[in-house]
Amino acid sequence: MSFLTAFVRSLPSIWDGIQITVLATLLGALLALVLSFVLGLAARSRHLLVRGLARAVVEFFRGTSLYVQLFWLFFALPILGFKLVPLACAVLAFGLNYGAYGSEVVRGALAAVPRAQWEATVALNMTPWQRMRKVILPQAWPQMIPPFNNLLIQLLKSTPLLSLITVSDITFQMDQLRSATGDTKAAYLVLLVIYFVLAYALTLCMNGLEALGKARLGQGRA
């Protein structure tokens, strides 16, 4: 059977694989985004304990390789009596690891908002929530997007790990096709191209978000 016919025949399962990969990427990114803000804000806390705790969590998850974290959640956690479905392990590992990296992005972007803006919010008697919501975040947000995009692409590139913990992601599906046809070159080339297209699509979305955020500030093309 030629590669092309086999490829067309297995399109439905390839599509399933793409959906799983995208799902894991988006859920992982969502968790990472939430953790980035929680840890990034905690790192600026007035209380030494909160700051120290945030620092420790960030350094721990940055320092101990995503690969090991994922395998720990998949192989070692069940020994403690918590068994997660494989996809949940992956989402958790992606979220924790990239959330730790993302918190540095949040911290940096908040620190880059001019001091006068912070002082003005205090002078106007805004509540801490109002300060963040109305003044600081709108200015910090567009600055966060390019580094967030880099992390998002890295997260996407980590998703072949799914296939190592029994999830039928796109890497698994293309590997099936490879062994069915024996055409290694074509199978891996297609797989790489699929990943390239996914990465490109994510970058376009993030560029759109950045333009939107900047337009809100009256910077750049509206």
């Binding site: 101990t64 395998f71 720990w72 070692a76």
Partner: peptide, 27 residues
């Protein structure tokens, strides 16, 4: 390292020890 940790973990059913040590060394 992680290959060895995985190997040791599966041979002795000691994933907890193996991957925790690997994580600690990385850190």
């Amino acid at each position: 390292m992680v290959h060895e940790a995985n190997q040791f973990g599966s041979d002795n059913f000691a994933y907890m020890e193996a991957f925790t040590i690997a994580a600690a060394i990385f850190l």
